[in-house]
């Protein structure tokens, strides 16, 4: 897309979606005691979701660009 050799949004989206999924799941299953240092906030759950959403957004953008290019 955009004349790119490889759409850079693919590795960025893939990595952050994977990071986000792992951290969100870890936030769901981890011992709440570890969140004392993050002021009692389950920051893994919330920020993991943000990372996943960012990764998914990048992947969708790359997919749309590839689709547009095919046409």
């Amino acid at each position: 897309s955009d004349g790119m050799k490889l759409d850079v949004r693919l590795p960025i989206g893939g990595m952050f979606a994977l990071f986000g999924a792992i951290i969100t799941i870890f936030g769901l299953v981890s011992d709440p005691a570890i969140y004392e240092r993050s002021l009692g906030i389950n920051i893994n759950l919330w920020w993991g979701f943000v990372l996943f959403a960012f990764g998914a957004f990048m992947l969708i953008m790359a997919w749309r660009a590839a689709k547009k290019n095919k046409q």
Binding site: I23, S30, S38, I43
Partner: peptide
């Protein structure tokens, strides 16, 4: 070290 739990 102070603020981020394992994961982040």
């Amino acid at each position: 070290a102070k603020f981020l739990p394992p994961g982040l």
